[in-house]
């Protein structure tokens, strides 16, 4: 028998995004609502969040694209290139859409360190493209730690003078979905909530409460070791890694319950301390990641 079979909490957690997705699909079919468009922009970052989304399960990316949203534009997945791709982006701006931005916004030298397109001889910087899209978007999601809090792109010494998308669009309501990368469920679940119920409940840092209400420490599989004061001496030990510099107590995310890579494991389950990637101050404030 599967050892997780009897725990309804774990079952329900791993199905949250799927439940929400099914509800939104029912809603779309019953009310004859046209599928919402989605524009996914990549700014100063590593494109890790779109790769993470491709690894989604319950629901997978195919399901998301086929049943829920029309992905109008994405830097990595766009079938077009060059000016044609930018025209596609401009066309999509005239529809009703959800804007997803991953990566920070580079501001140095007028944003020239992150160029979005070259259109009719002019250079369009990412900062400008994000601003153009944000002015018309129905909802704006900042996906990933760079986009939410600045993250690695704006870490010291910050040569490109990057700031988070949240700070750049400070006149708009931006939902933060931090994580390095963000879990596919966090992204698809939030999009599904936006389609069927509108704005989800947010905490004081504008993160959806359904995914970011508990710290990693709260649900940690090694929590009982911490409570008893039994700590690991080195990496590889089976006890609590708090004394090695675990950032679980200051990081809000549901990693221990949801788990990664199709719900297989998460860092602490694999003997690595939490490095606090879903929290602000990452990475400068979370260093050193391991301390002996």
């Amino acid at each position: 028998m599967n050892k997780f079979e009897n725990c309804p909490m774990i079952d329900s957690k791993s199905q949250t995004a799927m439940t929400l997705i099914n509800q939104s699909i029912d809603y779309i079919k019953q009310n004859n609502v046209p599928k919402l468009n989605l524009i996914w922009l990549e700014a100063t970052g590593c494109s890790g969040n779109i790769i993470s989304l491709l690894n989604g399960e319950n629901p997978g990316l195919y399901f998301l694209l086929k049943e829920m949203v029309n992905l109008k534009y994405d830097n990595s997945l766009s079938p077009y290139q060059g000016e044609r791709a930018f025209e596609e982006f401009l066309e999509a701006l005239n529809t009703e859409f959800i804007l997803v931005v991953e990566g920070a916004i580079s501001l140095k030298d007028g944003g020239l360190y992150s160029v979005f397109a070259r259109y009719k001889g002019k250079i369009i910087t990412t900062a400008k493209a994000v601003r153009m899209a944000a002015d018309k978007a129905k909802y704006i999601l900042a996906v990933g730690t760079c986009s939410s809090f600045g993250g690695i792109s704006s870490a010291s010494p910050n040569p490109s003078e990057s700031i988070s998308t949240f700070d750049y669009l400070n006149d708009k309501t931006v939902i933060r979905i931090p994580g390095c990368p963000a879990h596919p469920d966090w992204v698809t679940g939030t999009i599904a909530h936006l389609i069927s119920f509108g704005m989800p409940l947010l905490d004081e840092k504008n993160r959806p409460l359904m995914f970011y209400s508990l710290t990693v420490h709260d649900g940690c599989t090694r929590r009982s070791f911490f409570n008893k004061g039994i700590f690991a001496q080195k990496l590889g030990d089976a006890e609590c890694m708090f004394k090695l510099g675990c950032r679980g107590p200051v990081t809000k995310a549901d990693c221990p319950i949801r788990k990664w890579n199709q719900y297989v494991n998460y860092p602490i389950g694999d003997n690595t301390p939490c490095i606090g990637c879903a929290q602000d101050n990452f990475p400068d404030g979370m260093e050193p990641f391991v301390r002996y």
């Binding site: 090695l244 107590p249 050193p288």
Partner: peptide, 28 residues
């Protein structure tokens, strides 16, 4: 495995078991 102590306003505090002080470090 050493304890983690800090001094603030001349008083020395023990932060070894404070959850926000993992590995004797706290936000830099």
């Amino acid at each position: 495995g050493n304890p983690a102590y800090i001094a603030v306003y001349g008083i020395v505090y023990d932060v070894s078991n404070s959850p926000v002080w993992g590995g004797g470090t706290h936000f830099g």
